[in-house]
Amino acid sequence: MAAGGGIDPIHQFHIAPIVELKPFGIDLSFTNTSLWMVIVLAVVSAIMIYGSSQRSVVPGRLQSLAEMAYEFVAATMTGVMGKEGLKFFPFVFSLFMFVLASNLLGLLPGSFTVTSQIIVTAALALLVISIVVIYGIVKHGTHFFGLFVPSGVPGWLLPFMVLIEAVSFLSRPVSLSLRLFGNMLAGHIALKVFGGFVVVLLGSGAVFNYAIAPLPLLLAVALTALEVLVAVLQAYVFAILTCVYLNDALHPGH
């Protein structure tokens, strides 16, 4: 944790292999990221599968939680895409729960935030966009590219509009992945920096520093609350943007 006498706020993102695994010269080691992915999988599965195992008509606590997640995602999806969009329900639900659980578990002290790895968020965003493109082309053929041609635009303006639409479409996976990654990374760095201040101030030996040490601590507490909000909000944003993009695949006409 301490690097050169100070606190290294980047250390928490360091990836360390737990089990070395290198088939065909590719490093596929089971790392701490992998471990926390498995923990995320286990937690979500525990809530959703163990929680619903009672199959009670009057739900218990865990089943209520599972049902709440189910209905929340289903309501969000029907709100954005209509009933038709529910064919993507398992995908969006898995995505939402995976991101949500990663974000929230990452806030536990000593844990690792899976979504603070840009490769993870980028892979999820690319998965979403790939599904949008492939589903759109399979379902609507060339009509899908009507997405890039806004209606009611004068002919001379059309090339520019198509260019702008194309750029906006291509920037979607970038913004989708960077938004989540940036929020998680920045939040954790800020938390670590303020936490580090407390340690540095207490370790300095000066009485004045002892006196002001609680201030960054209070800030860290407030930031933790904010981070919980951000964790939930970013998972929701990720899910709802996925719905918006999938809606384009369902209804490509502007």
Partner: peptide, 8 residues
């Protein structure tokens, strides 16, 4: 770590 992360 990209390959390992993607894989897992």
């Amino acid at each position: 770590h990209f390959a390992s992360n993607l894989f897992w």
